[in-house]
Amino acid sequence: MKVPALSRGAWLLGGLLWLVATAAGFALLARHALTPGPTLEAPSSWPASAHPPLAKGRPTLVMLAHPRCPCTRASLGELSVLMEHARGQLDARVLFLQPEGTSSDWTQGPLWRAAAAIPGVTVLVDTGGEQARGFGVATSGHSLLYDAAGRLRFSGGLTGARGHRGDNPGRDAVEALLREAGGVGGSSEHAVYGCALEEPPEARATNTP
């Protein structure tokens, strides 16, 4: 089909704009995937108020998780890999948020069952997010590794981006800590990719009875 020169030029311009728009879209998508959630200061030693208490004789890993966050599925996947590599050296607990005013059904969904299926992992309810606040955690998938003495060795996420599984610095750091010094040498902090565990302050104010 013979197309007039002007029309061909219009198509070319349209194609260029399309490329730019598409590139911008992918860039935004990548930025979203690589933007970590907020992190707070985690207690440097095992909080006395934490329940259950620190495991005896081996490191303890605590992951605070939102039961409906799609990104957390990837975090649980990486935890599964970590537990397999740890070969029983690690006591892992996943504390799923149960906000006030929600039932246990809201919490015990597919992610709960996925976590419970990982060997060596204990799944618990964090009612009202008290444990998360105690550990200074604000983002789902945030994991904390305490050594047998209760000292914080690792704080951060086990994925390299939102919802993306695969090798990543966070999981590598935990594995290195366990491998090199049985979880007692050095410390590491990494970004966390996941949903916020609590509503924004203004929303909380609105929800308050």
């Binding site: 939102h66 409906r68 966050c69 799609p70 990104c71 948020l97 906000p99 005013g101 929600t102 997010g129 789902s140 919802g163 949903c195 916020a196 565990l197 609590e198 509503e199 924004p200 929303a203 909380r204 929800n207």
Partner: peptide, 9 residues
């Protein structure tokens, strides 16, 4: 990934 979450929101 139908929703992103912030607590209950």
């Amino acid at each position: 990934a139908p929703y992103g979450w912030e607590g209950k929101d």
